[in-house]
């Protein structure tokens, strides 16, 4: 399949945006999942609702809220601009939008894994002299690795497909913020763009299928490693 330069650009941008969206939000997702699974604190229901909000809200609303907060005049946007960080209408903004939309899925997958990890094993580790940090690194983390992996794959898939919040927050600038879904949408708006759109649709299918197969294989390997199969 021969792709035109702007189609390549859309694919490369989508991969870059999704990669950074997952890598940067994973540690925070792990922390939030752990808090929700293991800790009792005031405002836990509120945090839970806040995390899941992007899943329920129309993506356009999420995108618009991001624009209000992270735009040049927004409270966070203005603050970040002082350090030369601009998110609105940049690929970094697309990564932020993708991260926020994928966040609930990641938190949910990791939280389920943490809830399934037996706290009795951590208690056993404590009697062997392991402090809280060592227990997390040497016991909990390896046990929940499949859940973290599943969360990352879900987050990546969501990021690859994110459209509504992205186009609202960072628009649809070729080479800058035009991800795969935005490009498909753009090609469908111009006469004679169907062929390009179709090629990108095929590409999306290919990437999605590849991601599912790779994650299945990784999950199996990890499960074998931690002795669950």
């Amino acid at each position: 399949m021969i792709l035109r330069p702007e189609e390549w650009a859309a694919l490369a941008l989508s991969l870059k945006v999704s990669f950074w969206a997952v890598v940067l939000s994973l540690p925070l997702a792990l922390l939030v999942a752990w808090l929700l699974a293991r800790r009792q604190f005031w405002g836990k229901s509120l945090l839970n609702a806040l995390v899941f909000l992007p899943l329920i809200l129309p993506p356009v609303v999420t995108g618009y809220i991001l624009l209000l907060m992270f735009g040049r005049a927004g409270i966070f946007g203005e603050f970040l601009a002082r350090f030369g960080i601009v998110l609105a209408f940049r690929w970094t903004g697309a990564a932020l939008a993708a991260a926020i939309m994928g966040f609930p899925l990641m938190v949910r997958a990791i939280r389920l894994a943490i809830e399934a990890a037996d706290p009795k094993l951590e208690a056993a580790a404590a009697t062997l002299g392991a402090g809280p940090a060592a227990r997390f690194i040497f016991v909990t983390l390896p046990l929940i690795a499949p859940g973290i992996l599943a969360g990352a794959v879900l987050g990546f898939a969501k990021a690859m497909g994110e459209f509504g919040a992205t186009i609202t927050f960072v628009a649809n600038i070729p080479g800058q913020t035009q991800t795969l879904p935005s490009a498909i949408y753009a090609f469908l708006q111009v006469p004679g763009g169907e062929a390009s759109a179709l090629r990108l649709v095929g590409l999306s299918l290919f990437v999605a299928l590849g991601a599912v197969l790779i994650s299945e294989w990784l999950a199996r390997r990890v499960a074998e490693r931690i002795g669950q199969r």
Binding site: K120, L121, A123, A124, A125, V139, P142, L143, R225, I226, G227, Q228
Partner: peptide
């Protein structure tokens, strides 16, 4: 030493 062993499966 626990009744259920509690060995680390990983």
């Amino acid at each position: 030493v626990f009744q259920d062993g509690r060995l680390f499966p990983h």
